[in-house]
Design a protein around this nucleic acid. Structure first.
Length: 385
DNA sequence: CGGCTTTGACCAGCGC
DNA sequence: GCGCTGGTCAAAGCCG
């Protein structure tokens, strides 16, 4: 799929702000910028790649990795519409960070996973929630119960011993391989493999078409946990690393100390909308990220784009960063979470904020009509500047 | 020695 | 049907 890369670019460009803006210059170097891309479950089947393949992301695991503790970070989360629409991408206000979620269709190999996710109200959700981002996750889980579908693990299953070759594995042939929900986001970082609190084993690396940077494939080393993640550097913006998680962790983060979450459950969880922080901390909670699921479901075809403007004043304490995963006072998980939380200032109903924001910037309207509709509160208070 | 990375090969899905 | 590409496997090598 060639298109992917292109789309990605397109997207970014569409708005002058897009990529670059989002991540860049405006943000202090030390401040890593972070953006997320969510694959919306769903019906994006038609759509094909968007972000270089990342767009397939979506997913919501129970134990979300606590996102990266980047040495620098900032972030923005935005949900972006898949495919073409991306062109209209959201304007990123200059100093804003954005998180983008895009529903995307699964990659070639995949098949309908996405749709399942979407539709499914049946989805089994997460088995448990735990420590790490517990609060968020749980909440998320609750919200979604029913919505998220846990895609079964593709692997497992029978193998064909027959394959002559050594390797061929059992990827099931008949049924298209189903993928777990994926969740991806971009991080401005010099480090490709960000520490998210989990242990990963690299099992492959492939050259990315139209990009000088390779894509690395990692799998969670915890026994029984089939979570995978792909990491690649954006060709457009080499300083940006795109990380895609697939699947749900069935265990808490090994390096995350007890409830790392310094943050309390977000209020809006009940709304079904998750904050950027949540999203980030719980990538697999993507669904929750969607505003009003019902809307989402109804308009699967629609694209969503949400942008949050971070408060200017926010500074992620770089100090926080210093630490490193594991040990010190600094807990990556909490860090990232809190960071995001702050950054986005999700105080009010996020959904509304997002909406407003969008409105103000007028982009999403086309893209996400439903969002605009929200009659709800006008929390304009959310920061636009 | 165990765990992880590297790397070439192979499979599956998709577009032409 | 062919070629391309993404994704995965697993042997070999590296490292602590």
């Amino acid at each position: 799929m060639d298109g992917r890369e292109e789309e990605l670019k397109t997207t970014d460009r569409s708005n002058s702000m897009a990529n670059s803006a989002v991540f860049s210059d405006e943000i202090p170097t030390n401040f890593p910028s972070f953006s997320g891309i969510f694959d919306m479950p769903s019906s994006c089947e038609d759509q094909k790649g968007s972000l270089g393949g990342f767009t397939d992301l979506l997913g919501i695991p129970d134990y979300a990795p606590s996102l990266f503790d980047f040495p620098q970070t900032t972030s923005s989360l935005m949900m972006i519409p898949p495919h073409h629409n991306q062109q209209r991408s959201l304007p990123a206000p200059a100093s804003t960070s954005t998180v983008v979620a895009m529903p995307e269709r699964e990659s070639a190999t995949t098949t309908n996973t996405t749709s399942e996710v979407l539709n499914s109200s049946t989805a089994p959700t997460t088995p448990n929630s735990s420590s790490i981002s517990s609060s968020s996750n749980e909440a998320a889980a609750n919200n979604n119960e029913g919505q998220m579908t846990k895609v079964q693990e593709e692997e497992a299953d029978e193998q064909d011993p027959e394959k002559t070759q050594k390797q061929l594995k059992p990827k099931k042939k008949n049924q298209k391989r189903q993928r777990e929900p994926r969740f991806a986001f971009m991080t401005k970082s010099e480090v490709d493999n960000l520490d998210d609190g989990y242990r990963w084993r690299k099992y492959g690396q492939k050259a990315v078409k139209n990009s000088p940077y390779p894509r690395s494939y990692y799998r969670c080393t915890t026994a029984g946990c089939g979570v995978k993640k792909r990491v690649e550097r954006s060709s457009d913006d080499p300083s940006t690393v795109v990380t895609t998680y697939e699947g749900q962790h069935t265990h808490p983060s090994p390096i995350t100390p007890r409830g790392t979450m310094g943050i309390a459950p977000l209020p809006h969880q009940s709304t079904g909308f998750i904050s950027a922080a949540e999203a980030s901390s719980n990538p697999f909670g993507v669904q929750q990220f969607l505003p009003h699921h019902h809307h989402y479901q109804q308009q699967q075809q629609q694209q969503y784009a949400y942008m949050y403007q971070s408060s200017p004043s926010l500074n992620i304490s770089s100090s926080t960063y210093g630490g490193g995963a594991g040990g010190g006072p600094f807990n990556p998980s909490s860090f990232s979470t809190s960071l995001l939380q702050e950054r986005y200032n999700f105080e009010g109903p996020p959904s509304s904020s997002a909406t407003n924001f969008l409105r103000d910037h007028g982009l999403l309207q086309d893209i996400v009509p439903q969002i605009r509709k929200e009659p709800k509160e006008e929390d304009h208070h959310h920061q636009h500047q």
